[in-house]
Write a protein that binds this DNA or RNA. Structure first.
Lengths: 227, 227
DNA sequence: CCTTGGACCTGAACATGTTCAACTTTGAAT
DNA sequence: ATTCAAAGTTGAACATGTTCAGGTCCAAGG
């Protein structure tokens, strides 16, 4: 799918991606034309397509880039904290901070990634490696905490937290408050609520519901993985 | 924004919209070109733009159309049922049923409506009348039930259920299971869970969290309404 | 009947994402 | 050194959403 088997090719690929990254940041996604990317990279307009199937695939690369930053940012928190709320809050805050420089571009990126018709849909095949990687991060959040969880939660919670992260990022994208304080407020409030819900979900009035819901989540996840 | 001040203009507007509706249904959104719409409507390619600012604004009209169908479909259920779970499930099932004929188109529509950069974003100004209308439907779901709710829930629950509807529709859109059974399964499970959560949220371990969360939801909603 | 102003309509032109047939470069096998 | 196939590169061409300067239609006022 992606070329770049020669050193020269790899070089060109990188050059094109960096040009795209710069321009996305300078002007936003829509305002960046493929011709402009090509020009800045010093190649012909058609060259991008040898390395990236479409303009939006450049976005996937961008997302990979951001995810790597996110993982790096999380490391200290995950090494230090054992409390589940603190770990979760740390990781979610980190993703918001990491994305902050790209706030203006984020809209276009999200719309590409949310579009069910797009090849890059978050639930789709192209995004799978990255998705698994993010879910693994949340497995680490859960696994490294001192909270003991029932096995069905251990299995499915990371996936649900990944979903939660998507929700937070969507809110953050639309957030126009000064210093994006609204988002931080929402993060603090919801992280707390989630952990509280996890405990309550073990009590009689909810335990049955929890089991049923997680079984459903599991079977859906398996279906996606299979198809 | 929308012309159509003459009878003749109104006629043309309708013709164009119906042509678009047909073509969207036949070929999907992306595959429908503005030229094809114009051709089927028997007008020039530029004519659409006299009535609809863009191709995606045709989608807003489409969404209005679907919402009207949805409201009509809900009426019997809301007249009959008093149980909150039954009312909620009825309305959510209705929206899924109403949208079913447009399943193939739904993806493009959703991506337009979810795009924060789009003028048509669900949280944005252009979509406000429709949004309020949907929220009002959920106020009816809650208000007409025999369940007594704390005042903060009465105020904010409709908005949250609107959000829930969006989530269900997103799932439905990606659902490729036979007869869309997966979606119905998810709907039944989550409607039940929501109502259960509402009761549990009144008990000591969660009451405080509920109040804080709803206060946050409220202040955010006010901010959106103001800006 | 003529004039006038605004709504309505047209279709050529533009910008942009994408394709592709043809061309060049590269590096290893002969 | 020569060959050759694969990788890399090019830029003209295409389809499509959108714009806009110019034209047509029609009802009301003179």
């Amino acid at each position: 799918m992606a070329a770049g088997r020669t050193q020269r090719g790899e070089q060109t690929r990188t050059t094109i991606f960096r040009a795209a990254l710069d321009l996305f940041r300078e002007r936003g996604y829509e305002a960046t034309t493929m011709r402009a990317i090509a020009e800045r990279a010093g190649v012909a307009p058609g060259s991008s397509y040898h390395y990236f199937p479409s303009k939006s695939h450049l976005v996937l690369e961008f997302y990979r880039h951001v995810h790597a930053l996110h993982v790096a940012t999380c490391a200290p928190v995950l090494a230090r904290e054992r409390d589940l709320t603190a770990r979760l809050r740390g990781v979610i805050r980190a993703v918001v901070m990491t994305c902050e420089p790209f706030h203006d571009v984020a809209g276009s990126i999200f719309s590409t990634v949310a579009d069910p018709g797009s090849a890059l849909n978050v639930f789709g095949a192209d995004a799978k490696p990255l998705r698994e990687s993010v879910i693994a991060l949340y497995a680490e959040v859960v696994g490294g905490s001192d909270t003991r969880l029932p096995s069905d939660l251990t299995a499915e919670l990371p996936r649900l937290l990944w979903l939660y992260q998507m929700g937070v990022l969507y809110f953050w994208m639309l957030d126009t408050s000064a210093g994006r304080l609204r988002t931080l407020e929402v993060v603090d409030e919801t992280c707390d609520l989630i952990v509280r819900l996890i405990s309550v979900a073990n009590l009689p009035p909810l335990r049955r519901s929890r089991r049923r819901l997680l079984a459903l989540v599991r079977s859906i996840a398996e279906e996606i993985a299979a198809g």
